[in-house]
Amino acid sequence: MQSFKVRVFDRYINKFIEHGQKDKTIKKCFNFMSRKEMELLQDQFLFVPYTGVNDKNGNEIYDGDVVWDGKNKYIVRRYLSGYILDKTKKVAYQPNNTIWLSDYYYCVEVIESSYTNPELLEV
């Protein structure tokens, strides 16, 4: 079975869960007692996947991160089978404002996650 990396964002406290606590949270989410309890956990926790690449400083880039290339800020978004760098705050794909992360990751640095600091997306 292939493993994958995630960060766990707690919507109730508006921050990412620390590494030690993350393991307990993931086990709790996957060992639910009932459908209702699972739905409550999904309301509270957001699992944010790792894109598989690091920025120019070696930091891992996750879905929803805000990255900077020295001129522009972009949000990392999942699109089809990969990730894009989107200059807009809109969820819809816009070809004129988008760059594939796989072609550009070595030129950007992660500023912060859009989940913890949405005002970073302000132009």
Rank of each mutant, 00 (worst) to 15 (best):
F45E: 10
I99D: 05
V123A: 13
S3C: 04
L85A: 05
V108R: 03
Q94W: 01
E109N: 13
Y50Q: 05
V108P: 01
P118C: 14
N54K: 15
N14W: 08
G52Y: 05
A92P: 00
Y74D: 07
V66A: 08
N14L: 14
V108Y: 03
V48T: 03
F32I: 04
D43V: 00
T88N: 09
I111F: 03
L41G: 04
K28E: 14
I13N: 10
M38E: 11
N97R: 10
Q94L: 10
Y79H: 15
T98F: 01
N54H: 13
G20K: 13
Y106I: 06
D43K: 12
K22L: 06
V123G: 12
Y115I: 01
N57A: 08
K28V: 00
L46V: 11
K28N: 12
K24F: 05
V48A: 07
R7C: 08
V91H: 07
N31P: 00
K15A: 08
Y115D: 04
V66E: 08
K36L: 12
I13Y: 03
V48F: 04
Q42P: 00
L120H: 11
L40M: 10
N117E: 13
V6C: 09
L80Y: 07
G64K: 10
K71A: 11
C107W: 02
S3H: 08
Q42N: 11
F4Q: 11
V108H: 02
L120P: 04
P95E: 12
G20H: 09
T116I: 15
Q2L: 09
P49W: 04
I111A: 02
